[in-house]
Amino acid sequence: MTLLKLDEVTLGYRQNLIIDGMSLDVEAGKIYTIIGPNGSGKSTVLKTLSRNLKPLKGTAYLQQRNLFTIPGKELATRMAVLNQKPRAPEDLTVLDLVEHGRFPHRKRWRKGAADDKKIVDWAMSQTGVSPMAERKLDSLSGGEGQRAWLAMALAQQPSILLLDEPTTYLDINHQLEMMELVKQLNADLGLTVVMILHDIQHAIQYSDYIVVIKNGRIYSSGRPQQVINEKMFEEVFTVTAAVGQSERTGNVAFEITGLIRR
């Protein structure tokens, strides 16, 4: 079932077109990773999916409905976003933050529903931040902070999760922890995930589908083994690579061998 759909969207700002007529179908329950060089437009695509940038042409759909006409709160109960380098007031605790995730479920005339607390607890335990509920966000490490923000996103009870470079500021251990967490949420809750990653190794390891973007267009998309090949590395990232198969996992594997100078 197609959950999210971009139909011939042109994205950018008045004088500066970044994405030129792109179409993309996102199937429910799968993990999609967008990869591409800096400036290729991958963040712009995510900005449109998260409704931060209206398409200049074309339409974005969430199941047959125009994404940009769905009321904000309704959308927020179906789609959550983990933005890059999110900032918050310095005295906000993890619990405060996760409780904000219930905002779209709140009605003006009704006090917080009885199960709000239960869902907040659940979201914190899913992401392993319960033991630090009373701590201020400022005092958390990068990995803990990311998990706290992810807990807020989960408290929205979304069916779609958008992640903008969720591992960029983390060390290897916490990168992997984050990726495992995303994979687990996808497996346990059937969460549809669309994320941007720089690490192609992670993209191969954790995605059902990879979308490669080059110069504002989709260069290729499909299963990791269909997309990751030597030609792609050369044409999109201008590096040479040897691509083969991992003996251990059977996944496609690669080694970057050099830089192509133009």
Partner: peptide, 18 residues
Amino acid sequence: RKLNILLLGDENARSLGL
């Protein structure tokens, strides 16, 4: 409450439905 949400930054506030 909306002011609290706004303190999380425009992008986060928007994705929370504000």
